[in-house]
C-alpha cells in the first residue's frame, strides 16, 4: 500500500478499529516510512491534548435533583431509595452468580473479582488511598500487604491511576489498583500466584462486566470493568502490551 492509502487508515489503526491484516500492513509501513510515522505521532499528540481538556461532570445540585426525581416517582426519600435500588440490583446480580463450588477455579475467581468490583461501586468506596502525584499508592499498598508489592504504575494516555485499596479474594488479601478511563472504573486485582508459569491474558464476561486475567512475574492479575472486552484488552494493563523493559512487577 502507498502512503495515501495508509494515511486514511492511520486514525482507525490508532483507535484499534482495523482488522488484524490491515493493522499489520499499517504497522509494517509506518516502521519504514518517516512521514506516516510522524502523522501517527501527531494523532497521538492530538489525543493526549484532548485528554488534558476539562471534563464537566454533573453538578451536585443537578445530580440531587435527578436522583430524587427518578429514584421514586412519588416519595421524597430519593437518595435512600436509589441506594436501596442499587443494592437490590447488585443483590440480583450477585445472587444470580453461580455458586463458587460448582465452577472451575478460574470461573470462580472471575465471579469473586466481579463481586469485589461491584461491591466497591455499590458502596461507593473505590479506594482506600487516592493517587496524588507519583508514588503514593505503591508504598501505601506495600505497607498493608502480606506479600512484596513492587508494581509500576501503568497510567498512560487515557488510563489514569485513581487510587488503591486492599480487598479480599480467594480467601486472601489482595491489592487493587483502581484506574479510570473516561468515565469508566477499572479495578485491577493483584496477588501472588501459587503456580509459576506465566499465562497470557484471557477475557470473559461475567454478568455485564468484562474480566481479563493473566499471570506474570509470579503474580495473578485480574482486570474488571464495564468497558467492552475489546477496549479493556487494548489498554496497556498486561505486560504483553508493553515493551520488555516496562514489564510490571519485580
Amino acid at each position: 500500500m502507498n502512503c495515501r492509502e495508509i494515511e486514511r487508515l492511520l486514525g482507525p489503526y490508532r483507535d484499534g478499529e482495523l482488522d488484524p491484516e490491515r493493522s499489520a500492513d499499517v504497522a509494517v509501513h509506518q516502521r519504514n516510512c518517516e512521514d506516516c510515522r510522524a502523522a501517527l505521532e501527531r494523532l497521538e499528540q492530538l489525543s493526549a491534548a484532548i485528554e488534558s481538556a476539562p471534563r464537566y461532570p454533573a453538578s451536585p445540585e443537578l445530580r440531587a435533583r435527578l436522583e430524587s426525581r427518578f429514584a421514586d416517582g412519588r416519595q421524597p426519600y430519593g437518595r435512600w431509595l436509589l441506594l436501596a435500588a442499587g443494592l437490590a440490583a447488585a443483590a440480583l446480580v450477585i445472587g444470580r452468580l453461580t455458586p463458587v463450588a460448582d465452577l472451575r477455579p478460574q470461573d470462580a475467581l472471575a465471579n469473586e473479582v466481579v463481586r469485589a468490583h461491584l461491591r466497591s461501586l455499590v458502596v461507593g468506596h473505590l479506594w482506600d488511598v487516592a493517587a496524588s502525584g507519583h508514588h503514593t499508592v505503591k508504598p501505601w499498598l506495600a505497607a498493608k500487604l502480606d506479600f512484596p508489592f513492587d508494581v509500576e504504575d501503568i497510567s498512560s494516555r487515557g488510563l489514569l491511576l485513581a487510587g488503591g485499596r486492599v480487598d479480599s479474594v480467594d480467601g486472601r488479601t489482595v491489592a487493587v489498583l483502581v484506574y479510570r478511563r473516561g468515565g469508566h472504573v477499572i479495578s485491577v486485582f493483584v496477588w501472588p500466584a501459587a503456580q509459576p508459569p506465566d499465562r497470557p491474558p484471557a477475557g470473559r464476561s461475567v454478568h455485564g462486566f468484562n474480566v481479563i486475567d493473566w499471570r506474570a512475574d509470579g503474580l495473578n492479575w485480574w482486570a474488571v470493568s464495564d468497558l467492552e472486552l475489546g477496549e479493556l484488552n487494548e489498554l496497556p494493563l498486561s505486560p504483553c502490551f508493553l515493551p520488555a523493559h516496562e514489564t510490571l512487577g519485580g
Binding site: 464537566y56 436509589l82 435500588a85 468515565g183
Partner: peptide, 26 residues
Amino acid sequence: MPLSRHARFAAAILPHLDRAHNLARW
C-alpha cells in the same frame, strides 16, 4: 423481588449522568 420501573431506570441510566453532562456541556 421485582424492581419498580423507576428503580430499574435509576440503576441502569443514572450511573451515566456525568458522561451525559460532559457531552451536553461540550
